[in-house]
Design a protein around this nucleic acid. Structure first.
Length: 426
RNA sequence: GUGGGUGUAGCUCAGCGGUAGAGCACCAGGUUGUGGCCCUGGGGGUCGAGGGUUCAAGCCCCUUCACUCACCCCA
C-alpha cells in the first residue's frame, strides 16, 4: 500500500469496530461497578504543569526524563501532556478542596495518557487508563477493598487469565534503608550483573530485582526481601491486607521483587499481570499506597492509594477470552425498497422507527433487492421490511425474520411496525 | 534512545532480474421483488518513497520513511 498523505501519529492509534466495543465494555463495566464501592468519576485536563509530574512521579524516572510530551511555546511555565492521572487527581482534590467536603473522598477516572516511548505490543504513545484513587484513610481494609474492587471488575469483564502480585515497600525511610542494603548486596557481586543492572544499581537499585537476565535473577533470589525491612506497624498493615484478601477469597502471590517504578509509592504495592497474549508488556493494572504524595504536592498529610489499568491491554486480554457474545437487545431492522417510490417512503419510515429507539438500517444507494438483502445479512439485521409498489398500494409491508426466514405482512404505519418489532423481542 | 524483523490489491500473503499474482473481501450477474452455499464475470496496485547498477529492477546496491517485535521503561 502506498503511504497515504496523512497518517496517524506514531504510537497513536485509531480505535473502531470490535476493538472500540471492547474498550467501551471495559469502561462501562468500570463505571457501573466503581460507584458501588463509593467511587465517583473525575475528569482532569490532559494538559498539566510539567512540574506536577516532576514532583510526583519523580525527577529521575524515565517517564519524566525522556517520555514527556512538552508543549511548545510554554517556556515560562512548562506544560506537558499527562503521562498518568494520579498526580492530576491529587492536584484537583487539593485545588477543589474536596477533602474539606469529604475527608475520605474516593474518585475514579478514565482517559488518554501520553508517553513518548518507542511503541511495541501493549505499549502506545497515546494509551488509555482507568484508575481509582482513595484518600484519607490508613486502614489496611481500604487497601483490600480497592484490590477487591479491581478483581471484581476483571471478573465481571470475564477475565480469568490474570494473576495478582502484591508486596510492601513500607515507609519512605524503610524503603530507603532497603534500597541501601540492596545496593550493598549487589555491589558485592556487581561483576556478575548485566550491564543494564550495573547502571540500574546507581539509578534505581530496586529495579535490579525484576531484571530478566538469568544471572541477575540468581542474585535476586539471595537478595534481602523488602518485607524484612518493614517495622512492626508496616508489617502488621501488610499482613492485615493479606488476611483480608484471603478472607475475600482473592487469590494472590506475595512477590518481594515487585517494586513499582514511580517514586510516590509507599507500603502496599500490587500488580495484575496477564498470563497470555500480551507480549513483553504484561501488566494490565498496577497500583499501591502513596501516603506521602498529597503532602509532597503541597496538601495536608493525608494518606491515599490507587491503581491504574491499561484499557488497551485489558482489551487485548478480553480478545483472548473470546467470550464476546454481545447480544443486541434492540430491534434491528433493514428497510428494503423495491423501487424508487418506495425508497422515498422508507426514508420517512426509517426516521419514524428511530424515534421508537429502533435500530433502522437503510441504504441510500440505488441497489437491487438482492443487494439490499446481502447488506441486511452482513449487518446482522434481525428483520427486513420489504416495500415496493404492491405494498404501497395495499398499505401492507412484508416483514421477514432473517433467522427463521418467516415472512408476514404488517400494516405500513410506524407505530404498528414499531409495536410489532418490540413485541417480538426476546 | 538501542537492536532485530517486515513493507506487493481493502486484508493475509506468493512472486526464479524479463508483460503485476492468489485466496479472502468488495461490486454485478446466474429470468419478474428476497440473504448465507455454489457458479460466472468485474473493479481495484506509481510493488512505502528517492536515488543507483543493468538492455531490462517488485527482486541487486545505497539513502530515507513507515510498521512491527524486543531491550530500556511501564498500564
Amino acid at each position: 500500500m502506498a503511504t497515504p498523505i496523512f497518517q496517524a501519529v506514531r504510537g497513536m492509534n485509531d480505535c473502531f469496530g470490535d476493538m472500540l466495543q471492547l474498550h467501551s465494555r471495559v469502561e462501562q463495566t468500570a463505571s457501573g461497578l466503581f460507584c458501588c464501592y463509593g467511587y465517583q468519576q473525575m475528569r482532569t485536563p490532559i494538559v498539566e504543569a510539567l512540574d506536577l509530574f516532576v514532583r510526583s512521579v519523580g525527577q529521575q524516572t524515565d517517564v519524566v526524563q525522556k517520555e514527556m510530551y512538552l508543549l511548545a511555546g510554554e517556556e515560562k511555565r512548562p506544560l506537558c501532556l499527562r503521562p498518568e492521572n494520579t498526580a492530576s487527581v491529587v492536584r484537583a482534590v487539593l485545588q477543589q478542596g474536596l477533602l474539606q467536603q469529604n475527608p475520605e473522598v474516593k474518585l475514579w477516572y478514565c482517559g488518554p495518557m501520553f508517553r513518548r516511548e518507542r511503541p511495541q505490543q501493549g505499549r502506545l504513545r497515546q494509551f488509555h487508563q482507568i484508575g481509582a484513587e482513595a484518600f484519607g484513610n490508613h486502614e489496611p481494609s481500604l487497601d483490600a477493598e480497592l484490590i477487591c474492587m479491581l478483581q471484581h471488575w476483571l471478573h465481571t469483564l470475564g477475565l480469568h487469565n490474570t494473576q495478582l502480585h502484591i508486596n510492601s515497600l513500607g515507609t519512605p525511610q524503610q524503603r530507603q534503608r532497603y534500597t541501601d542494603v540492596l545496593r550493598q548486596h549487589y555491589q558485592q557481586h556487581s561483576d556478575k550483573l548485566c550491564s543494564n543492572c550495573q547502571r540500574r544499581l546507581h539509578t534505581n537499585a530496586l529495579r535490579v530485582l525484576d531484571c530478566k537476565e538469568p544471572a541477575c535473577r540468581q542474585l535476586a533470589a539471595t537478595a534481602p526481601s523488602s518485607l524484612e525491612f518493614l517495622d512492626t506497624q508496616s508489617r502488621q498493615h501488610f499482613d492485615e491486607v493479606c488476611r483480608l484478601l484471603q478472607q475475600a477469597e482473592v487469590a494472590f502471590d506475595i512477590d518481594s521483587t515487585l517494586v513499582r517504578g514511580l517514586d510516590y509509592y509507599t507500603h502496599t504495592v500490587f500488580e495484575i499481570i496477564g498470563t497470555q497474549g500480551l507480549g513483553a508488556q504484561d501488566a494490565v493494572a498496577a497500583g499501591g499506597r502513596y501516603n506521602e504524595l498529597v503532602q509532597d504536592l503541597g496538601g495536608p498529610a493525608v494518606p491515599a492509594l490507587g491503581f491504574a489499568a491499561g484499557i488497551e491491554r485489558l482489551a487485548a486480554l478480553l480478545q483472548q477470552c473470546n467470550d464476546a457474545a454481545h447480544k443486541q437487545n434492540r430491534p434491528h431492522v433493514m428497510l428494503i425498497y423495491a423501487d424508487a417510490v418506495a425508497r422515498q417512503q422508507l426514508l420517512q419510515l426509517a426516521n419514524g422507527l428511530r424515534q421508537h429507539n429502533i435500530w433502522a438500517h437503510f441504504t441510500h444507494g440505488d441497489r437491487s433487492v438482492k443487494a439490499q438483502m446481502r447488506l441486511a445479512h452482513r449487518c446482522q439485521a434481525q428483520y427486513v421490511l420489504v416495500v415496493g409498489q404492491t405494498e404501497l398500494q395495499t398499505n401492507q409491508a412484508i416483514l421477514k425474520q432473517m433467522q427463521t426466514k418467516q415472512q408476514q405482512t404488517v400494516p405500513l404505519s410506524v407505530p404498528k411496525i414499531a409495536k410489532q418489532l418490540l413485541q417480538q423481542q426476546p
